[in-house]
Design a binder for these strands. Sequence first.
RNA 1: GGUGGGGUGGCAGAGUGGCCUAAUGCGGCAGUCUUGAAAACUGCAGUUGGCGCAAGUCAACCGAGGGUUCGAAUCCCUCCCCCACCGCCA
Length: 429
Amino acid sequence: MLDIKVLRDNPDAVKAGAIKKRLADRVQAVDRALAIDAELRAMIPGLDALRSEQKNFGKTMGKLSPAERETALARQKDLKAEIGALEEREKTLRAELEQQLALVPNVPDPEVPDGKDDTENVEVKRHGQVRTFDFTPRAHYDLAEAQGWVDFLRAANMAGSRNYILFGDLALLHDAVLRFAVELMVQRGFVPVDPPLLVRDQAMFGTGFFPGGEEQTYRCERDGLNLIGTAEVPVTSLHGGEMLTEDQLPKKYVARSACFRREAGTHGKDTRGLYRVHQFQKVEQVVIDVADQERSIRHHHDIVANAEALLQACDLPYRIVAVCGGDLGVPQAMKYDIETWMPSRNAYCETHSASRFYDYQARRLDLRYRPKDGGKVQFCHTLNNTVIASPRVLIPLLENHQLPDGRVVVPAALRPYLGGREVLGKPLG
RNA sequence: GGUGGGGUGGCAGAGUGGCCUAAUGCGGCAGUCUUGAAAACUGCAGUUGGCGCAAGUCAACCGAGGGUUCGAAUCCCUCCCCCACCGCCA
């Protein structure tokens, strides 16, 4: 949610932002919001004056003669009807304003590259050597199935497509990388959180997933609850509705959680293997801090660096892209994706997504703080980034670290989580 | 699931139809005193919106939404949440 004042002062910039995000259909929400705002502001002074008159009546009533009292009461009746009608209109307008304002996307920062979709994201950094194989490397699904580490068929039978069952060492590796990720973040001062996975609509709305993301979300209709697609939702909502004090900030949280995504509209895309699945585990980092653009940008770089540290510790080649306007979501002001090299796909593929929102989420969540210097109450800034998502990260781990015989080398950083083992699997024929 | 008690400003906590324009305390800010700090004292101060260059001024807000009333923090209804006890249960 943007401040209505931003729309008033700079409607063209807000509209240009929506167009840069390729959300042209939401441009009209700006004009609608402004029209409603104008009507509200035109009627409020009159309404306030009437309410003022009504309110003052109680003080004078006692001094009136019976006859005067009669006329005064008649006037009060009129006032009541008049105020009632105006309040009805005000209520409708405020609801509509809220609705339109909720549709207005956050304005992308100037540094966000122009572009229509993820093919036009701009690489800003590349790290690590892409491995060249002197044997024919196996794709992770072939390798894992041959090792008896994964079963897609039985998973599909019991749960439908885009599901998987991990077994044995791969189940352990999955857990190892997640545990490593949590510990790394705890070392870096983040507070571990184990949040609810089923949340109310307000949390989905507050983080900007609703309206718009309903189709991607599993919903428990009879309880009115939604399964989270990322721990960003409950963790960013953690202090929703609260008034924090500046000395409580920044809040840095790390949450490991299961994540659920319907992947509607992706039929036929990435159907093979562990890349695009309905349920996965993710370690997510969330930062909540004061309303300071420069600090937000610094946090943004920090949370990217945290993810990089993890990938480097796992000896995985990756690159960072600045996500272009057309690939940016509604609530983000700027986003970096980290893409890790996946030999079977012969490409760098998204494994991390680091976003900064400024106060867009905080406004929707009513997440505020009181500045130290006694200044005006402010909305917080929020950011988040993946630390690791598995099983997706198992793809590069298996494929980049495979041996010619189908065994897999464990990166040194993960060995403590696997009983010190350096290699997983048995030699394949 | 059942019964009962609650939800008031940053926090605690008074307030059962009209001087509530929400007491009081804590915390916060400014000042006096002090080498500095603490204590003490004095003053300022809720949030949101409208109008205004500003001082200011008007309105809304007492968990959410409806209702009764000339008038609601206060009475009624629905919902949400918290606490206590009982039942069931991982």
